[in-house]
């Protein structure tokens, strides 16, 4: 036990996938303390603190505008790209503060992948979409290695069987659900440790949604997944842990079963039963 608790070397230094360090599986992957976010003078998040475990799916639920997406974007510093946005507090991944000066947000984002609400494949071929990350981070030393990464990523995202014969077709020629799996494959291709998903199924039909949910369930064996969702049913189906946000505050976090069957807070109860939100 003591051996597992040794201090880890800093992780967010290079985009290359690192060999597995002695990570304490019980320790949370992401530790968040007192995070507040401001857009100009408007406060979007008010001192949120939460622990997110590794190798599990954590769902953020809450009504629109409650700050759950804003919070998600703190984890990979995507809020940096919004002019006038200010983040306070600490977000640590494997014990390292992502807002530290020594952390390069570009490398951080290779370690923390993100999938958006609307599928956003690049205006490139299917192959080039998946190869994008490995190319810019120099992860493949040759063409065959790159092809290997692309194939493996597409397989993991459950898309290989559907596109293996048309890798040069434009990514935008796929259906919405396929596009979203392509985007997940793109994120997986740089071997991230955390995958953030911002309402990944809200633009999809029920069948495509079921397919993505299946995929999320498979991916949690290897990645720490954080998903923002409007659908409580989806949170109940795919997540092991759930956090409820309301009006910029984290109201309650716990195991999904507990939140849905026996919430401690009355507001959580009200939201789950449909009385607010």
């Amino acid at each position: 036990m003591v051996a597992l608790m040794t201090v880890q070397p800093p992780l967010i230094r290079t985009a290359a996938p690192h060999s597995h360090h002695p990570v304490n599986l019980d320790a949370p992957k992401i530790v968040v303390r007192d995070v507040s976010v401001f857009y100009g003078a408007k406060q979007a998040l008010d001192s949120v603190s939460i622990d997110v475990p590794g190798k599990a799916v954590t769902a953020f639920i809450g009504p629109s505008g409650c700050g759950k997406s804003t919070f998600l974007r703190c984890i990979n510093r995507m809020n940096d790209t919004i002019p006038g946005c200010r983040v306070e507090g600490a977000v640590e991944i494997d014990g390292e503060d992502v807002n530290a000066r020594s952390v390069d947000p570009v490398i951080l984002r290779a370690k923390v992948g993100m999938v958006f609400q609307k599928p956003n494949p690049f205006p490139k071929s299917i192959f080039e979409n998946v190869a994008y990350g490995p190319r810019i981070h120099g992860l493949a030393s040759g063409k065959s290695e790159l092809e290997g990464i692309v194939e493996a990523s597409l397989k993991k995202a459950g898309l290989w069987a559907e596109v293996s014969d048309r890798l040069n077709a434009p990514g935008t020629s796929l259906s919405g659900g396929q596009q979203q799996r392509l985007v997940i494959a793109r994120a997986i291709a740089v071997s991230p440790e955390v995958i953030l998903m911002d309402e990944p199924c809200s633009a999809l039909d029920p069948i495509a949604t079921a397919r993505i949910e299946e995929l999320i369930d498979e991916l949690r064996q290897q990645y720490c997944i954080v998903i923002v969702t409007h659908s409580m049913a989806q949170a109940a189906r795919v997540s092991q842990r759930t956090a409820f946000f309301h009006m910029g505050r984290l109201i309650e976090a716990g195991s999904t079963e507990e939140i849905f069957t026996n919430p401690r807070e009355s507001r959580t109860q009200d939201y789950i039963t449909g009385r607010i939100g």
Partner: peptide, 9 residues
């Protein structure tokens, strides 16, 4: 598209 690219690092 920008977000997607930035999110890839």
């Amino acid at each position: 598209l920008r977000d997607g690219s930035y999110a890839m690092g």
